[in-house]
Design a protein around this nucleic acid. Structure first.
Lengths: 202, 202
DNA sequence: CCCGTAACTGAACGGCGCTAACTCAGCGCA
DNA sequence: TGCGCTGAGTTAGCGCCGTTCAGTTACGGG
């Protein structure tokens, strides 16, 4: 039984709810375990109280997902040195991305492996924007043959997502250490990007 | 209300259940809609009858997943020409793989994007075996620098799974047509594989 | 002090996975 | 022909779920 919030502090519960849902997801490792009732129990309120702050369960999960998006963005951002070598920058960012996925499997599954047709979160968009910028820097530095930064960013994302999501979905089916696979795939893709079309004919 | 099976034909219901679950999944496009009760309604029996043929809901879904695995394997197999150019063989197989995922989003999500820690289906294993063989042929033909067929197969799978699973999870976030992305990623990865390490330094 | 209202609770509905106990039809056998 | 065994189901029910609605509590302003 938690203390009722003061008059102007209705949003306090909202934050507590999101944090409880986060905790539940990480502890159980199962999105299905994050039930409205379980979250309410964790918070110390009743289930209907949740609906004062969220339209429905989906919207609560979305709020949690936004959090994870921001965390992933921070984590990748912290791993890259914007002023260093631009290809190395892509490399480090990509490795950090995969690492975050492996370290946070349920969050990763939540934000990238369940249907999100309509609302691509704005945070997700800015995170992707950072990737496009990094790709553009590599292109501007003449390190990549492909001219379209959007193509490079999307391609790199696909490739890294492939490794991360396989690691999350079928942990046993991949050779360990995962780093080997990450590096292999990343290097071959980057090599393809840096080599010009003539050489590719080989 | 369906006719009760004859004495020796208990397995008839089992098949009807799997087919009904398949239909439900494809029609609704939502794994959560494949409830034991909904399947029972679709079949025309009662819910507990399902438990005469499956341990629990998970096992029913697993049986459906096995079906999809087999279908995917057939589809990819039909797209490749075993005796043709080995790299072209990889290319066509990879493209067919992604196409199947896009054409069957819920099945794809089911078999590759939900947790499958323990039992990697035997069908899945043989399908992967086919990929390893194809990689080995390309290596034997001297078309690929990497010597380890398992690495090539895993890498190629990761890369193609990246595209397919992004397409399934965030249909709106990817540029269309998807083929462009598939081809780009595939070609760059293959180019990286066919180019030797010295050239990569560029 | 008291009343409006923000912040919540209690009870309930229909649907879920799953279980235990029961029924019923058809086959083998006397 | 009749009978009982047994395979193939059904009926009823538990505890959980998401969600709604009507009610209740307590803070803060007048």
């Amino acid at each position: 039984m938690r203390q009722r919030a003061r008059k102007g502090e209705g949003d306090r519960l909202r934050i507590e709810i999101i944090e409880a849902a986060d905790r539940l997801l990480v502890e159980t490792g199962d999105e299905d375990a994050v039930t409205v009732r379980a979250v309410a129990r964790e918070v110390g309120c009743t289930a209907p109280a949740i609906y004062l702050h969220f339209e429905d369960r989906q919207e609560l999960l979305l709020a949690v997902a936004e959090r994870y998006f921001a965390d992933l963005d921070r984590h990748v951002d912290a791993a890259v040195d914007r002023d260093g070598d631009p290809v190395e920058c892509l490399r480090r960012g990509a490795a950090a991305y995969v690492q975050w996925g492996v370290d946070n499997p349920e969050p990763y599954r939540m934000i990238f492996m369940t249907r999100r047709d309509d609302v691509v979160s704005s945070i997700g968009a800015t995170a992707f924007g950072h990737l496009v910028e990094a790709a553009q820097r590599a292109i501007d530095a003449g390190r990549i043959v492909e001219r379209d930064a959007l193509v490079v960013a999307t391609g790199l994302w696909s490739v890294m997502h492939g490794v991360a999501s396989l690691a999350v979905a079928t942990p046993g089916a991949l050779p360990s250490p995962l780093d080997t696979l990450t590096t292999h795939v990343l290097e071959k893709y980057l090599a393809g990007l840096t080599v010009d079309a003539a050489t590719m004919e080989a």
